[in-house]
Design a protein around this nucleic acid. Structure first.
Lengths: 126, 126
DNA sequence: CTTGACCTTGACACCGGCGTCAGGGATTAC
DNA sequence: GTAATCCCTGACGCCGGTGTCAAGGTCAAG
């Protein structure tokens, strides 16, 4: 399939696909007229990339997962490099959460000081 | 005082001070030679801006606080506009925390699937 | 032959808060 | 005089993942 079809099926823009290629995450055969040609495996790779991006991974983070899939593994997370990224991302996320919790407490304290009686509870907190 | 002294005392770069001015947060008198001149009140404003930036506010978020101080209030958070920003930031932070918690769970689940037995607990969690 | 839908590469725009360099002028000390 | 240290404005760079426009080539249908 060509880039337009892959884009539609993967739910991304053609711009994004070219960018992934430029970043070395996907490659494309070229037909005689210079058009990029993709197969079902490429769709799989793009789906993996999208899934990772939506949970906050960067394209660089996604690289081991793509390589893992290309190596024939059932999932992109099956390789030790991918597992290492998972763990790093977990610690990064935890760090961000801690930072936000501290900030939240600071802002809530400031609000309480400036506006006694103002509610400062988290939404959805019982 | 001139910009270099204010920068040193406030712990920011001169570039940052010019940027705050460009964004309309602070203003400066000009001496005959065109140099910016600041006073102690300006130092106070910059301190307020820095405090807000470090808890994740943008310069736009900081604007009501600066205005509040300039209006003669004891703290930048004493005005209703500032309180509104406090509350908005609290909901934004809460939203970010929720997003991160969801992501964390997703990543942890993926890791658990790819690497049975791998620890996925939050650091510092008992 | 022409229209239209597809494809190509290249490059600027965005967001935020600056860092940093270029190319000057001002002031003070020696 | 001149060196050192300050100041000025203007403008590009950064980061990440695109959106979007420019200016063209390709191909099938009518």
């Amino acid at each position: 399939m060509r880039i337009g079809e892959l884009a539609r099926r993967a739910g991304v823009s053609t711009r994004a696909l070219r960018y992934y290629e430029q970043q070395g995450l996907i490659t494309a055969r070229r037909s005689a007229n210079g058009y990029r040609e993709y197969d079902e495996d490429d769709l799989r790779l793009v789906a993996e990339i999208r899934a990772l991006l939506t949970v906050g991974f960067t394209l660089a983070d996604a690289e081991p997962f793509v390589a893992c899939l290309r190596a024939g593994n059932a999932t992109g997370g099956s390789c030790p490099e991918s597992v290492a990224v998972y763990r790093r991302k977990l610690t990064e996320i935890d760090e961000e959460i801690r930072t936000l919790l501290v900030r939240r407490a600071e802002v809530a304290a400031q609000l309480a000081g400036s506006c006694p009686g103002c509610p400062t509870g988290k939404q959805g907190e019982k």
